[in-house]
Design a protein around this nucleic acid. Structure first.
Lengths: 341, 341
DNA sequence: TTGTAAGCGTTATCAA
DNA sequence: TTGATAACGCTTACAA
């Protein structure tokens, strides 16, 4: 095989003295070829190093082996772990994953999905929070509807407003569990670092927290709206310490934020958990390796990535399949009873 | 626009009463169309929601907007951070990234690259260590040579045996720097947790270490061959503690391994850095967040991902461009002078 | 400046 | 069971 030349279907056909149709059929394992010929074709193709041109194949009506993944923040361990599970599972099924970074911007996200659709990917997997305002996702939904109508498959992870197959983390339950955990430890002056109110994940986690703490006369609850990032939380934590110095527990809406809080507290000489308890959500891999290690509610991120691929592999039925993902409280060193008064 | 129907080039042409050639030229910004017509075409195309069929375009000779990334271990922060930088930079240049997981298996890697080549990706980026035995990569090189000959672009990150454009982390220098750091702190009984000897990264880092420590009568050096992972190092650390209990410093060949060492030591009640110092390589994001925070040599991983994309964007010249990536010693809490005898 | 028409490498539809 | 041959939707000479 000389450099710069790719073996085509026609080359294989010619070498064997059969038609391209026969070779095509033999290689894609379709009926209508004698097993004898099929075997010969396969051997020769392998010898000649033939690999089908993906674009020709797709254009002619074959199906793609690529699936698209859209994440809000590549770099955020939450998405990294999901992506890891998905890519690994994909590899085991001879599928390729195209990863897109949308940066939490609906416009950019739309552009990325459009690009995936133009690539005729077999499925689009959307990971991360949706928007509470349905208007924001309107264009996206129209796009996905068209994609679905033409045989595309959409799988969401945590975007409950989309009418696709979905993996739905129990964010509300996780919020309630953490609030209860703090309550049981004896905390009564609690600060919550929330994210942008437009995100369903934020909304749901807050709802869970409120469901447990609201209406209790003995609880003093402060909710701060901040960025959904480590740095946003680090800054907000300063505010908490200064405005409500008697706070005994800080609940951050995700682990990245909780790490930011730990950072601020350490810098200010506030001991965790002796003086202030801290907890997060998700249980990203680092959470266990921090010191103090972080109390959090676990969602099996890598597993969710794998499961998303399972959904991709099973053809969509009429009904959208919506699977709830349960959380699990992981109690570690960062939470403890509040200091004695 | 009805569901299930995609606007094609021909639809746009017909709507305007011009030829497909004109539309094609106008949309790809080629010369030979009056700016007036071009403008009209662009507007109409946008209105009709036209997006070119990637496969048709590629088949007809256009270029792809996809680049392939092959990593050893998706899930390992080393690769995650590189991938993050690459994907983000790609997004800014309207490029898509296909991520492949090779699991440190040359056969799987070959298969993945073959698939990328079949997709006619614009470039293949290979991240991670190469093999010291040139035989192992022979098939890969043949494949890449063909790819290059047909106009494909190959960029390596840290695979110095490949004759492509490359970003080459100064692994040898980093090894020497860390060895010197330990020496200067006063350590004389040092254990090194190495990885599989077949990897160039392992070889280079070890070479750097040996270049500083070898031939010194006062230094007792033990090198253990283990897995290039956190768990491998955790197990090896047990052996170090048991076989050479007087060791005062453990040097792991990457941060993931160093974290494994910290884990083992904590579990055994060995205090870091009071009793034993620990250091790693790479400075993945967690390294700073651990406690004790980890002394390591920094390679700017995210930046390297971005830079790899820059190489992809600048067309290959005759000469392969090989850029050295410098390291930086980051001294944190995990290293200190050895305990007094 | 514009249009016509010939590919690009497959798959799928008919005939044979 | 096989083989011609027409799509698939685009780019790009070559003509006009």
């Amino acid at each position: 095989m000389e450099l710069g030349h790719v073996t085509r279907l026609d080359d294989v056909a010619r070498a064997l003295g059969v038609s391209t149709a026969t070779v095509s059929r033999a290689l894609s394992g379709k009926a209508g070829v004698s097993s004898e010929v099929a075997e010969r074709v396969r051997r020769t193709a392998a010898e000649m190093g033939y690999v089908a041109n993906v674009h020709a194949r797709t254009l002619a009506g074959g199906t793609t082996t690529v699936i698209g993944l859209v994440v809000h923040e590549i770099g955020d361990p939450y998405f990294t772990e999901i992506a890891g599970g998905l890519v690994e599972a994909a590899e085991q099924n001879d599928l390729l994953v195209q990863v897109c970074h949308a940066g939490r911007d609906p416009g950019r996200e739309l552009k990325q999905v459009r690009s995936l659709v133009a690539h005729r990917v077999r499925a689009v997997v959307l990971a991360g929070s949706g928007h509470t305002d349905p208007e924001v996702d309107a264009d996206l939904r129209a796009l996905l509807d068209g994609f679905t109508a033409r045989g595309g498959h959409v799988v969401a992870i945590g975007r409950r407003h989309l009418e696709s197959d979905a993996l739905l983390p129990d964010n509300t339950g996780a919020g309630a569990t953490l609030a209860r955990h703090l309550l049981e430890l004896g905390h009564r002056r609690i600060a919550v670092l929330g994210g942008p109110p437009g995100l369903t994940t934020v909304q749901d986690r807050l709802a869970g927290i409120h469901s447990v703490l609201d209406g209790r006369e003995d609880v003093e609850l402060h909710v701060l709206e901040t960025d959904f990032t480590r740095d946003g939380a680090a800054t907000a934590a300063v505010e908490v310490v200064e405005r409500w110095p008697r706070t005994t527990a800080v609940l951050a809406l995700n682990d990245a934020m909780a790490i930011g809080v730990l950072d601020t507290l350490r810098r200010r000489g506030v001991r965790v958990p002796e003086q202030v308890s801290v907890a997060g959500f998700d249980d990203v891999a680092v959470a266990a390796q921090l010191s103090p290690s972080l109390t959090t509610t676990r969602f099996p991120l890598t597993e969710m990535g794998r499961e998303a691929l399972q959904l991709v592999l099973t053809p969509p039925s009429g009904e959208a399949r919506r699977r709830r993902v349960d959380h699990q409280l992981i109690t570690r060193e960062s939470t403890a009873p509040p200091p004695q008064e």
